[in-house]
Design a protein around this nucleic acid. Structure first.
Length: 265
DNA sequence: GTTCTCGGCCG
DNA sequence: CGGCCGAGAAC
């Protein structure tokens, strides 16, 4: 009888990645288990460094637990280096493989050319950006984003953002349930300014007058006050983050002191 | 040749 | 003790 190996989906990794656990059947280490991962293309990975090298900056494995296959928020970077003023600038030890660089990980599905390296002389590498931008798009495609919610790596659904009331949805689905998605998409799809639908005709008969280069959103103007408000929000968010990091760093310091006391006793 | 498996090193 | 990887075994 052949025991098939189970390759299970791994929700903490990008779609298509599979995890497998193999129990050792014999030898001194019988009963111990080895964990492997398979990329969407089927390549096998048998350690976190190996996985990390392959994913590079496209994915942060900082709090990924290789054995369980889950993101461990508590295990936030098991780095020796503490967030302290005395080593903020001069980082000693190895440069961290891929937690260090602040890479935006949410936008990668938009307009990213894929470079596929294949060791065959007749194959050519295509990076065709035109395709991504000039493909025909479905009218009112934003509707398909309805009901989609973002979630973090532990699959907790995140609180949605509140949009200014000046932003009004347009089109067959007048609710603003897709508005945030539509605007976020628009910001990623183009580097041109996002103005919304400037033609008033579009409001009355969007099926005909819709400007497809712009999101399903009535025209709006951004005032200097809006910008100041936003700057304030960002500033406050940064303050909160700074405080949270500081509290975290203190908690860790206390934790390790207890460790030492525990061992001494 | 490739893939599977366990040993064993090292932190 | 467990993660990681070398290398022999198996195919």
């Amino acid at each position: 009888m052949i025991m098939e190996k189970k390759r299970t989906d791994c929700p903490a990794l990008p779609p298509g990645w599979k995890k497998e656990e193999v129990i050792r059947k014999s030898g001194l280490s019988a009963g111990k288990s080895d964990v492997y991962y398979y990329s969407p293309t089927g390549k096998k990975f048998r350690s976190k460094p190996q996985l990390s090298r392959y994913l590079g900056n496209t994915f942060d494995l900082g709090c990924f637990d290789f054995r369980t296959g889950k993101m461990m928020p508590s295990k936030m970077q098991k780095n020796k280096q503490r967030m302290r003023s005395d080593n903020l600038s001069l980082s000693k030890g190895k440069p961290d493989l891929n937690t260090a660089l602040p890479i935006r990980q949410t936008a990668s599905i938009f307009k990213q050319p894929v470079t596929k390296v294949v060791n065959h002389p007749n194959n050519k590498v295509k990076s065709d950006l035109q395709r991504a931008t000039e493909q025909p798009r479905q009218l009112f495609w934003e509707k398909r984003l309805k009901g989609l919610r973002s979630s973090d790596v532990t699959e907790e659904v995140l609180r949605t953002m509140e949009l200014p009331t000046a932003l009004q949805s347009i089109g067959p689905d007048s609710s603003d349930e897709t508005l945030l998605s539509a605007l976020a998409s628009a910001l990623h799809m183009t580097s041109a300014p996002i103005t919304g639908q400037t033609s008033t005709a579009a409001e009355k008969n969007p099926a005909i007058w819709l400007n497809t280069a712009q999101p399903l959103c009535k025209a709006f103007t951004v005032t200097d006050e809006d910008i100041r408000d936003q700057e304030l929000k960002v500033h406050q968010a940064r303050r909160s983050l700074e405080e949270a990091l500081m509290a975290d760093s203190l908690a860790r310091a206390a934790e390790s002191t207890q460790d030492i006391e525990g061992k001494a006793a």
